[in-house]
């Protein structure tokens, strides 16, 4: 389940009501987020042996912003890559298998590059990889839109706990977590700053294991 997306109103609000504010720690700061994205951009190009046929599809909402940033970095390295024309946004809401376990979500727009995705190498971009269910939904959504030559997955944070046989091709940071912890990705576009934060279980919840 998408517990990895606090700050995103599609998920149920955190239960902060009892006990003091949970502790949260910064895992990546703005410079580290930027370095991770630059590295991923180079990895994507290396893997693809150049920018030919590359299409970046971000999963709303933070994945869409990350895809745009990756595309800008690709264009810096390879001026032949047209960042605007090769970037899109892929809403997966209508393909999710956990709709009935969550409050009703409002679908976000899907935008395809003008050239479509047929025979392209599509790089799916998301902020956090957790259960893998979002990615599964994305693969289904993608197959309704066309037939890519290959699909790759790039994520800023992989926090483990997969429920499906899915792995990322490009990872900004592997972050071992417990399921009781929550991972926040903040981006300048949506949250005013670039950072990845990890938040422990609430004090009350963690009382027993506190030092």
């Amino acid at each position: 389940m998408a517990g990895a997306r606090p700050g995103d109103d599609r998920t149920a609000p955190l239960v902060h009501t009892a006990g003091p504010t949970p502790r949260s720690a910064t895992v990546l700061d703005a410079a580290e987020v930027s370095r991770a994205l630059t590295r991923i951009a180079h990895e994507v190009l290396e893997r693809n042996k150049g920018p030919e046929g590359l299409v970046l599809m971000g999963i709303p909402r933070r994945g869409t912003h990350l895809a745009r940033r990756l595309a800008e970095r690709l264009a810096q390295v390879e001026p032949a890559f047209d960042a605007e024309a090769c970037t899109g946004s892929l809403d997966v809401t209508l393909h999710r298998d956990d709709l009935r376990r969550n409050p009703t979500r409002t679908p976000e727009p899907t935008r395809l590059p003008a050239t479509g995705i047929d025979d392209a190498t599509v790089v799916l971009v998301d902020d956090v990889l957790y259960s893998g269910r979002t990615v599964r939904a994305a693969l289904d959504a993608l197959s309704d839109l066309g037939r890519p030559r290959a699909v790759r997955l790039a994520v800023l944070v992989d926090r483990g706990h997969r429920e499906l046989p899915i792995r990322a091709d490009h990872v900004g940071k592997n972050l071992p977590t417990s399921t009781a912890e929550r991972v926040f990705v903040h981006l300048a576009e949506t949250d005013g700053e670039d950072a990845v934060l990890i938040e422990g279980p609430t004090e009350r919840h963690a009382e027993g294991e506190e030092r």
Binding site: L94, L99, R100, R101, N102, P103, T104, R105
Partner: peptide, 9 residues
């Protein structure tokens, strides 16, 4: 969708 998709449906 709004009436049937969510958990409260």
């Amino acid at each position: 969708y709004l009436l049937l998709a969510g958990e409260d449906a």
